[in-house]
Design a protein around this nucleic acid. Structure first.
Lengths: 182, 182
DNA sequence: GTCTATAGCGAGATAGAC
DNA sequence: GTCTATCTCGCTATAGAC
């Protein structure tokens, strides 16, 4: 294969790292694996990103900014949130799982905490007001996180046995009172 | 220190491994660390348990059989379950977190799945009947697991800011309709 | 910028004396 | 049963030729 210009090599490394970290996790993915998948070599990977951990933190991002979930009226929000989780696809699904799995690295634990805070708690807190709004936002975030945990971390596949729509409806019914009442 | 007879050494290894795995996780705990904490040496650890992974699986057990939670009448069950999770102490708390963190080892992922199935889903399923009982049991298990995840994996300490009792009451209110209605 | 070769470390696991 | 010494392997990261 022809030599790539630098920007393309860097991009290939990012793509390979994202896919491999998401698929196998932090510990099980070596710098060698990433280099091979990007058709380059381990030295370049370190040269571009400094270390495996920095590369991990650079690629394992999770942002809800791109999804217009929180634009929905409050009435529709529970359904939208649950749908988002149930329909979550790779690599986003793997990103969360990989971050959870590498939680024993302090910097990675911090990232996981940040994501929970910034992408789940904070947007919910924006939409809730009055007495106990913060607790309700945090409870709702935990509820949503629980579904992620059940589906993608523990891997309870039978949750989907009754059908995707049924699961979405039932879980929405659990979340709704938390967001719509005081 | 005097030399221990075998049974005591084995017990010391189990105690040390339980504490260290629960505190630091699988990857961050070495066989050497365990041996040192048990006042013995790495060779004995392997000799007694075969490998680090087998030792992990031997020590990281989580059983709800000892807790009489599921003896409670159905009406009281939601409150009991939530209380149990919120009041979870070491090393049980660390066991769950360590299992989640080492999920990239297939045998450990399987154990995590087993625990979810046997200690949460199955006892709930025993208590529920009628149409959709299985889905309700699985939803309830996810709800409970979500609280474990939020409190002990992600580490949202502010959930407890309003007070332990308030958290228990609010989360119980979320779980109750799932277990008590059709 | 790129790649070959390897340094340096730490891990889990083992051999064999006592 | 116990422990010292060591083996072997895999990893990240680096040095240096091109």
């Amino acid at each position: 294969m022809a030599r790539r210009p630098s920007a393309l090599t860097r991009e290939a490394i990012v793509d390979a790292a994202t896919a491999l970290f998401a698929e196998r996790g932090y510990a099980a993915t070596g710098v060698r694996d990433i280099a091979a998948a990007a058709s380059t070599d381990p030295a370049l990977v370190i040269r571009h990103f400094g270390s495996k951990e920095l590369l991990f933190l650079d690629t394992m991002r999770f942002s809800l900014q791109e999804h217009p979930i929180f634009d929905a009226p409050l009435e529709a929000l529970p359904h939208r949130l649950v749908e988002f989780v149930v329909d979550l696809e790779e690599p986003q699904r793997g990103v969360v799982v990989a971050l959870v799995g590498a939680r024993s690295e302090p910097a990675i634990a911090e990232r996981l905490h940040e994501i929970h805070e910034q992408d789940f708690v904070a947007p919910l807190l924006d939409r809730l007001h009055g007495e106990g709004a913060e607790l309700r936002a945090r409870l709702a975030a935990v509820l949503v996180a629980g579904l992620i945990y059940g589906l993608w971390v523990v891997g309870d596949e039978r949750l989907l046995a009754a059908g995707r729509d049924e699961l979405v409806d039932r879980y929405t019914a659990l979340l709704r009172p938390l967001l719509l009442s005081t």
